[in-house]
Amino acid sequence: MDIPYTVEARPDTGVYNAKVGIWLFLSSEVMLFGALFSAYVLIRVGTPAGEWPHGWQNLTLGTLNTVVLALSAITTLMAWVACKIRQFGKFQFFHGCTLLLGLTFLCIKMVEYHQHLNHYEIHLTDGRIADGDMLQNNPKQDYVVIKGRYAAYEEDLYDLRAQKNLKETEIKIPRSQIKDMQSYGPWHNDYLALYFTLTGLHALHILGGSIVIGYLWGPGRRLWKTDPERFTNRVEVSGLFWHFVDLVWIFLFPVLYLT
């Protein structure tokens, strides 16, 4: 006996197996990201007034990534429609676009991560704080060079949106004046912890989705010749996952970049 309803819909439920499967999987994903968003809300609400960072992100890159994902959502849908109307060439084009857009997203994300990890907050022995992008941090030299600014208080570093026209200059700091130095990694504060965890998990989803899409675009296309309907279903299911990942980003973008 073969497993029924792998291709055609079961009459009383109206869906085929994989569609039930993917929606069940997405439900669990809703709970996964739901728990993380709950953590976000609790930690943000619990942060003392004025200490939640604003404007710490590169809004240009963030917006670009948002548009990239939105566009890839369209192309993945187009790929499915192309399968539906049995035009394999169109499918290959659109699915290739999705794959490229997904990889573009990941590349931009890596640039952003690099920017954060290369940004340092340096506490000086005289009580001042130097904050900026690291330019030279060679252990052999007895100084470091950052492109940034001095701040008198920690509080000055939180809300960058409120501070227009920040002047950034190259600052050379002798190592003897450095009390401690920390990059803007997830260890720096709760906002960055949330940022790296949420976007990192999301990027893993993008990576997973790209692998599936790449498989369907590459070796998985064999199925098209033998069972195009089933192949179309696979494209639809992978598309649903991709849209969900887009959906998560739609909420990640405002809570991490805009507010």
Binding site: M31, L32, A35, L36, A39, G185, P186, W187, F196, T197
Partner: peptide, 18 residues
């Protein structure tokens, strides 16, 4: 999944010092 989320966060606490 919420425990998975919590596990990921505790893992970050231990490994990435969040």
């Amino acid at each position: 999944p919420p425990l998975e989320a919590a596990g990921i966060m505790q893992l970050m606490d231990r490994v990435a010092h969040t």
